[in-house]
Nucleic acid binder design. Structure first.
Length: 308
DNA sequence: CGACTTTGACCGGCGC
DNA sequence: GCGCCGGTCAAAGTCG
């Protein structure tokens, strides 16, 4: 519940950040075209910007209401599901225990690809609305291999991804299909934890970092939101799971994403809520109307600022 | 001094 | 069998 309101506020924050950004742009243009623009045109521009800001705020409110409605519907469906489960007894219990992690064996390359395809398909399926009520089933698949794409500062060449767990780097390799090195990490939070992750920048867009998690954590929760002690100094990104591979529309800029106070791996409801929020965000970004409106608003604003 | 990173060497799977 | 490639090891170096 809390997380939803937080996410809603994040939406507000994102849009308001955009408005903030837009509201600051005229200063630049003012400086650039100081010699040719009169005071009247400036004030006219400010009025236009304020009107635009108001429109965006209204849009923001509408989106927040939509999100609220979606969450209410979700809550209703979820309570129905809980009722059905409690009626049907302990069979297929609601709070499914974390599956025992299989001991990691030497992976074969062809197995890796096959599992990846499975995960990709499962993730595609998870987008559909009814599948959002079956996170446990998907988690069982994801627990083997999960891919995450993170947007980072392109100028930062480090491969540290802040995901809350403690990782120990054990190797780095330049692969054939990507000039950027791939870093190999092992979970160092618990000695028995066999989870590994690979981190590599995308060859096409080096601001995007591809993180592949293999295995499942045997411990409950990371103790902090930081990486290893050294990593604290050069953290580049929080992680944002996305459902599809590397297309820009599926990558969420983590710099605008607020810190999540709950622990994703700690409690199933929190995890469920987080997944729901991700799916909502995914639905919004997939909505052609939403993206088109956003794109036209931004492009219109950019065009209105251009000197010509 | 312990924990961590770096980096070259090594290993095993795969294709030719 | 050989070479390529991805993944892992482990010694040396670094840092707090």
């Amino acid at each position: 519940m809390e997380s939803i309101t937080m996410e809603q506020s994040s939406l507000s924050l994102d849009l308001s950040v955009g408005s903030h950004w837009l509201s600051h742009q005229p200063m630049k243009t003012e400086r650039n075209s100081n010699a040719i623009t009169s005071g009247e045109s400036k004030s006219k521009e400010v009025v236009n910007l304020r009107a635009e800001l108001n429109r965006m705020n209204e849009e923001n409110e509408r989106l927040s209401e939509m999100l609220q409605n979606m969450y209410e519907k979700y809550s209703a469906l979820r309570s129905q599901m809980m009722d059905i489960r409690s009626e049907s007894g302990s069979e297929g219990g609601s709070a499914a225990p974390e599956p025992e992690p299989e001991p990691e064996k030497k992976r074969k390359r062809h197995n890796f690809k096959t599992q990846n395809e499975i995960v990709s398909n499962a993730m595609d399926q998870s987008i559909s609305s009814d599948e959002c009520l079956k996170p446990i089933k998907n988690d069982q698949i994801k627990s083997k291999i999960t891919k995450v794409y993170v947007q980072t500062n392109p100028s930062d060449t480090s491969l540290i991804v802040k995901d809350g767990y403690q990782w120990r780097k054990y190797g780095q390799k330049v692969t054939r299909d990507n000039p950027c090195p791939r870093a190999y990490f092992r979970c160092s939070f618990a000695p028995t934890c066999q989870v590994k992750k690979k981190v590599q920048r995308s060859a096409e867009n080096q601001s995007i970092v591809e993180v592949t998690y293999e295995g499942e954590h045997t411990h409950n929760a990371p103790t902090s939101q930081s990486d290893t002690p050294k990593a604290k100094n050069n953290v580049v990104a929080n992680f944002v799971p996305v459902s599809k591979p590397v297309t820009d529309e599926h990558i969420i800029n983590i710099k605008k994403k607020p810190h999540l106070d709950f622990d994703l791996s700690a409690s199933p409801p929190a995890q469920l809520q987080y997944q729901l929020v991700e799916q909502m965000a995914s639905s919004l970004t997939k909505d052609p109307g939403f993206t088109a409106a956003l794109a036209s608003a931004i492009s219109g604003k950019i065009l209105s600022f251009s000197p010509n």
